[in-house]
Design a protein around this nucleic acid. Structure first.
Lengths: 175, 175
DNA sequence: CATAAAAGTGAGTAATCACTCACAAATGTA
DNA sequence: TACATTTGTGAGTGATTACTCACTTTTATG
C-alpha cells in the first residue's frame, strides 16, 4: 500500500462515512485526497474496488482484535474483552465503523462472519460459566454491545461510556 | 393523501429501504409505482420532498405509539410497553424502520426526539421503581431495544425474539 | 546515462440523474 | 352543456456521474 493509495483511502473513507457511498462522487474523493480523479481508477479499478480496498484494509485490524480475544483461556477474560470492545474503539477508527454500520443496512458488507465468531465465542464462555441459556445470553450481549457502539458512533462526546461499561461488567459479575 | 400518492410513497419506501435513497432513481420509483416520472414531482415537488412525505406519513404512526405508552400510569406498565415496542413492529412496517435506521447514519432523520422522549419516560419509570441510577438504566434499556430492533430488521425469520423479550422482562422483574 | 515500467494527469465520453414543461385526460362545478 | 381546475403524461434538458485514454512525469533497473 503506497502513500498515494493511503491518501485516497483515507479521503474516501471519511467521505463515505459522512455522506454515504452513493452520495460521494469520485471527483470529490480525488479533490479531498489531492490527486487526480484518474489515479483512483488506475489504483483501484472502480469506485466499488476502492470500497472493497477500504473494507479489506480495515478488516485486517478487526481480525487482529478477534484473534487476541480468542487467545484468552479463561471464560471471564473472554467476556471482559468482548465487553471492552465497543469502548476501546479509537476515535481514528470511527469513520471506518460508521461506514461498516451504514453498509449493514444495504446488505453489502462482508463482516457478518465476525459477529458470528463473537457469538460462538461468548456463547462458549457463558456455557463454561454455567449460564442456563448461554446462546441467548450471548445473543443479548452482542445486541447490547452493538447498541453501545451505535450510540457512541452517533453521539458526539458520549460521556456515559464508563458508566455503561461498569454496569455491564457488574451485571455479568466480572468486576 | 390520494390513491396515486400512496402508490408512489409505497414504491419509494420499498426501494429506499432496499437500496438506499441515493441509489434509487426517481425513474425506478415511477416504474415500480406504475406512474409517470413527472407525477412524482407534481405531487412531491422533489425527490427530497417525497422522502419528507414518507417520514411524516410514518412519523404519525410513531407518535400515536408514544402517546399510548405515555398514557400508562404505572411505571411497570410503562416499562413493559416500551420493552414490547421492538417486538410488536408489524412486518408491513419493516421497510419504514429500515429506512429510519439507514438515515440515522447520514444524520438526516428527524426522529431523535422520539428517542429522547422514550428516554425520559423510562428514566422516570425506573426512578419510580426505586432504581439507583434510573438514567443509566433507561439509557441501557433503549440501547438494548435499539439492538433488538436492528437484529430483527436485518435477520430474516429472527426466531429468538420471544426468548429475548422474556429474558428482558425477567431482568427488569416485569413478568 | 539509457530505457522501460510505473505513477500520475486532465480533457473527454456515454450514460444517467433530478427535474421541467407543453400538452392531454379526467374531474369537478355551474 | 361549457368551462375551470386538477391530475397525469412523456419527451426533453442541463448537470453530474463513473470511467477511459492519450499523454507526461517520476521512479526503478541495467
Amino acid at each position: 500500500m503506497t502513500e498515494r493509495q493511503l491518501q485516497i483511502i483515507h479521503a474516501a473513507l471519511q467521505l463515505f462515512a459522512e455522506d454515504g457511498v452513493d452520495a460521494t462522487p469520485t471527483s470529490k474523493i480525488a479533490k479531498t485526497a489531492g490527486v487526480s480523479e484518474g489515479l483512483i481508477f488506475r489504483h483501484f479499478g472502480s469506485k466499488d474496488g476502492l470500497l472493497k480496498a477500504i473494507l479489506e484494509y480495515g478488516g485486517e485490524r478487526v481480525a487482529a482484535f478477534y484473534a487476541k480475544i480468542a487467545n484468552e483461556s479463561q471464560p471471564k477474560d473472554i467476556l471482559r474483552q468482548i465487553i471492552e470492545l465497543p469502548f476501546s474503539i479509537d476515535e481514528s477508527e470511527y469513520d471506518f465503523w460508521r461506514l461498516i454500520y451504514t453498509l449493514k443496512w444495504q446488505r453489502r458488507t462482508h463482516l457478518e462472519n465476525i459477529t458470528e465468531q463473537m457469538l460462538s465465542l461468548s456463547s462458549k464462555a457463558f456455557n463454561d460459566l454455567g449460564y442456563e441459556a448461554p446462546e441467548l445470553e450471548a445473543e443479548l450481549l452482542l445486541i447490547v454491545l452493538d447498541g453501545v457502539a451505535t450510540r457512541a458512533l452517533l453521539t458526539e462526546s458520549y460521556d456515559m461510556k464508563t458508566q455503561v461499561k461498569n454496569r455491564l461488567l457488574k451485571q455479568y459479575k466480572l468486576d
